[in-house]
Design a binder for these strands. Structure first.
Lengths: 342, 342
DNA sequence: CTGAAAGCGCTTACAG
DNA sequence: CTGAAAGCGCTTACAG
């Protein structure tokens, strides 16, 4: 054995065993064409015999590429962000990149820039930031940004490449569905005002209403959690005005469904309810929830695709307008929506 | 400016600006004590002026430490794993480590060892593997394992340090709760047979039943998803035998609740149902679900703690028995369980 | 097709 | 308290 015990083998060990120089080993490892087939085979078997593995730090030091993408996500009892993260990871790995992840508890501009700073210590090549709030996106645009950044779920970010689901289209779709069912108007339990997804869904809802010449009630803001949907649902039940409610996510819809049920309001007989997200549970709500599905995996894929383009594009000509990719939303019809009572 | 445009500053640039050698800069950066306060201040301000950031690859090359922990998680529409990952991340960052994450679609021995291989390319210092199936844990023990590995959710792993929630205790708690309510016995909708969590919960359930001298029905296996709970719930409703059902997770409990409701079986009047996980939705199920909560953040924290101990322990004396840390489960009483009808 | 030389940007002994 | 020297393990021109 030419490798001392207790030390992992280095390129020179492989070279010695194969009877070549370490440059030749490097060539083989990097798929360089100018290596004789026989030499290549000898090197390969030396690599396997030794269980050699290239030192990534040494390689990164000279190539100036770490192959690491930094991801800023946030702490989630929510379905969407978790799915998005997973989509990002799969896409990154398929392209041979590594993912270094920081998850945030609070979604503030400061927390995000702190997270990016932390990741910078690890020499990430670029960032994917899940940026669901306006302040975060704006903070992102302010960053010195020596590395490319792609915002995911970032609404219409000012100066950043963005991938997001078509929240506006989803809100429009949901509302249109209810109007088509003959409802005079549609009430809206919205997300918190500073979330871009909430904004987009509100805008789509409003547009559909306006197009139809329907009255536009004030949106009622929850905090995404079931409890807030419950509270607002109870209020709606008491007012006895709404016949159709578009809820900005399935968790709040669950709460609303429960409040309605407790108040003796039957869904969909008395009131139609539609959600947003299509979480795995919503099919088994009481009643099974009509909702709007988002393709989170696709969002992840496109986000990584965009970032890698930025990373690998030789054409370093700064694009006049940053790329922007919008994934369509899709209506999932179940039984919580029905025609308006005549 | 002593730094050419277009190149990020290196230690030598800082040294030049501060009028010292680059070793002194290194000392300041590493908090080495023997640096004159005045020198240190000069170096610090040079660092800030230049916006200098240490090259992590160069550093890792010589220290042989990357500060990166590899995490193998799996694709999750499930609540628990996502929370666990988040707990791991926070704990790691608090200790100054980075997390490189691979998420798996399929939980097989091969997929896990492939993922670990992928992470090895990045020179991770150790691994945290979320290993919820027996085959995975066993595969882990077989690994060459040049780096420390901690299994999370790994039941009673043969030869690995493990952190997990007390599934047995949780199953026992749930069953005991139902027996204490006067039920003659408790039926069990279990998870898939090859999942360690499912096994642990079954064992706890069985023990509670046996201790009470209650009959032990066959456990009915679902696949964790709502639909399987629905199917089994419908079957139970038809048989009209069960008065109390312990369901191995909240998602299946949701399905069961729905099937029971459709069959006209009232919960908890006719049948009591208890779940496991305490997902955010379960409080708003119909009816709100009594369940068993797991502290996923604590699992993540302990997992990282264990791994870092392994990484940093100077006392390299191989412990005779690998560490094992069990996080208790906790009963959350809501309204889906009630005393047995007399 | 292959090897000798230089260098990436740090840290670690070793002097002083 | 501080600096000159060596070296971590690779890749990249440069020769041949």
């Amino acid at each position: 054995m030419s490798v001392p015990v207790g030390r992992s083998p280095v390129m020179a060990d492989v070279a010695r065993l194969a009877g070549v120089s370490h440059q030749t080993v490097s060539r083989v490892l990097n798929g360089h064409p100018n290596v004789r087939a026989e030499t290549q085979a000898r090197v390969q078997s030396a690599i396997e015999e030794l269980g050699y593995r290239r030192n990534s730090s040494a390689r990164a030091l000279v190539t100036r590429r770490t192959g690491v993408i930094g991801v800023v996500a946030f702490d989630t009892t929510h379905y969407g962000p978790a799915q998005t993260l997973s989509g990002i990871e799969h896409a990154a790995r398929a392209d041979g990149y590594f993912l270094s992840v920081v998850t945030l508890q609070t979604v503030t501009r400061e927390a995000v820039s702190e997270a990016m700073d932390y990741l910078a210590q690890q020499s990430v090549e670029g960032y994917i930031v899940i940026a669901p709030k306006r302040a975060v996106v704006e903070g992102l645009a302010d960053q010195p940004a020596e590395r490319p950044v792609v915002a995911v779920e970032g609404g219409e970010a000012p100066d950043l490449p963005v991938v997001c689901v078509d929240q506006f289209g989803g809100g429009y779709l949901a509302t249109r569905h209810l109007l088509d069912l003959g409802h005079r108007t549609v009430h809206h339990i919205a997300g918190p005002g500073d979330w871009l997804e909430a904004e987009g869904r509100i805008a789509g809802w409003r547009r559909a209403l306006e197009e139809a010449g329907a009255p536009v009630p004030d949106p009622l803001h929850g905090d995404w959690r079931p409890r807030s949907g419950y509270r607002i649902g109870a209020q709606l039940a008491e007012e006895r005005e709404a016949t159709a409610v578009f809820v900005a996510n399935d968790q709040m819809a669950l709460g609303a469904l429960r409040a309605l049920g407790e108040a003796g309001v039957r869904v969909p007989d008395h009131v139609s309810v539609i959600g947003f997200d299509d979480i795995p549970e919503s099919e088994f709500f009481t009643p099974p929830l009509t909702t709007v599905a988002q393709d989170f995996s696709e969002v992840g894929r496109r986000g990584i695709g965009l970032l890698i383009d930025l990373l690998e594009d030789a054409t370093d000509t700064a694009p006049t307008t940053p790329a922007r990719s919008v994934v369509p939303a899709r209506l999932v019809t179940r039984v919580s929506t029905a025609p308006a009572c005549a």
